[in-house]
Amino acid sequence: MKKILAMMMALVLTMSLCAFSAAEGADISGLTVTTPGGAPALALAAMAAENPGQYTTVAADTIAAAFAGKEADFIIAPLNAGAKLYKAGKSTYKLAAVVSWGNLFIAAQKEELKAEDLNGANLTLFGENTINASVVLYALKENGIEPAEVTYLAGASDTQSLLLSDAEAIVVTAEPALTAAKMKNDKISAISVNELLQQASGMEGYTQAALFVKAETAESNPEAVAAFLAQAEEACGKCTTDVAAVAEAAVALEILPNAKVAAAAIPGCAIRFVKAAEAKEQVEKTAQIDLSQFGGEVPADDFYYGAE
């Protein structure tokens, strides 16, 4: 009996090693990735710099078209956008991993800006009716902070411009725009929205940007997908363990203008790779902040790649 058990264990181990080797040795050179520019692109910058021909950068407001076009094997996009399109039947892309956990900050030209400074103040956000705005407003409300007025501009670069031009403005901006602003004006200080969110709910960030895999690619070439995701996890890890290398890659890919800004901004982008199945609870917690941003309900189980 012991011999039989030993043989069975050896067989299982051999099969596992073979599967791992197959995944590690799979050819991923034909796989393509579409990503918006800016912070989301930093997640795989270390990979993209080695094989730039596999990566296409698009404007953030065209990412829905990338899902509909089904040309790329992988897409980096706001998680809620991918979930909403999948629920509506407009996308076959499944969530492979969460790669960005919140890069938002509240900033002003003021030494040591504090959360209580926002009470009764005018606050300018970017991206009205987006999950980012919903997270900010939720974090403020749950911490008992009540601005007198909330207004909106289009994007983080717009609130960055206001931050630099108006000494009285209090704005929500994002990395790397915040770091670039600080390098132009050393009076600027900021509050991490993630810190406010953790104080309010215990959440360590929120599921902001994600890596999606096309279902057809996952079905037809699972070994290559597994190999790609293993390398993607390593690339995300470098955003913590080798910031200088990622900064150099970001400059080479024209994601950011210079290595100094990149190196200072990357830590605030909260990039870490968490597989879909392991991130499910956090996805649902983020969705509960504003279900309308996820199509009215939390994503179905089949949205999560590898969780079947």
Rank of each mutant, 00 (worst) to 15 (best):
T56N: 14
T56Q: 15
T57G: 07
T57Y: 15
T57I: 13
A59L: 14
A59F: 12
A60H: 14
A60F: 14
A60L: 14
D61R: 12
T62Y: 14
T62A: 14
I63W: 12
I63E: 12
I63G: 13
I63T: 13
I63M: 14
I63A: 13
A64W: 10
A65T: 14
A65I: 11
A66C: 14
F67N: 02
F67M: 06
F67S: 07
G69L: 04
G69K: 06
K70H: 09
E71F: 07
E71L: 06
A72F: 04
A72D: 10
A72E: 11
D73S: 07
F74Y: 08
F74S: 01
I75R: 01
I76A: 03
A77S: 15
A77N: 12
P78F: 01
P78H: 02
L79F: 04
L79H: 01
L79R: 01
N80W: 09
A81H: 13
A81L: 15
A81R: 15
G82L: 04
G82V: 06
G82E: 11
A83H: 03
A83N: 08
A83V: 07
K84V: 07
K84H: 10
L85N: 10
L85F: 10
K87D: 07
A88R: 08
A88C: 05
A88E: 12
A88V: 06
G89K: 03
G89P: 09
K90H: 11
S91W: 03
T92M: 02
T92S: 00
T92H: 00
T92W: 01
Y93V: 01
K94H: 09
K94S: 01
K94Y: 01
K94Q: 12
L95I: 11
L95K: 04
L95E: 03
A96I: 06
A96H: 05
A97I: 08
A97F: 04
V98W: 06
V98I: 14
V98S: 10
V98P: 00
S100H: 09
S100Q: 12
S100F: 05
W101I: 04
W101E: 07
W101Y: 09
G102E: 05
G102W: 10
N103E: 11
N103R: 14
N103F: 12
L104F: 10
F105M: 15
F105R: 15
F105Y: 15
A107R: 04
Q109W: 00
K110E: 07
K110V: 03
K110H: 09
E111A: 15
E111T: 15
E112C: 08
E112N: 15
L113S: 00
L113F: 12
A115Q: 08
A115I: 08
A115D: 05
E116L: 00
D117P: 06
D117Y: 02
L118F: 00
L118H: 06
G120T: 08
A121W: 01
A121K: 03
N122L: 01
N122H: 11
L123Q: 05
T124D: 05
T124L: 03
L125R: 01
L125T: 01
L125Y: 08
L125S: 05
F126H: 05
F126D: 00
E128V: 06
N129V: 08
N129P: 00
T130E: 01
T130W: 03
I131D: 02
I131N: 04
N132Y: 06
N132S: 13
A133L: 02
A133F: 08
A133M: 09
A133E: 04
S134N: 03
S134C: 00
S134F: 08
V135H: 02
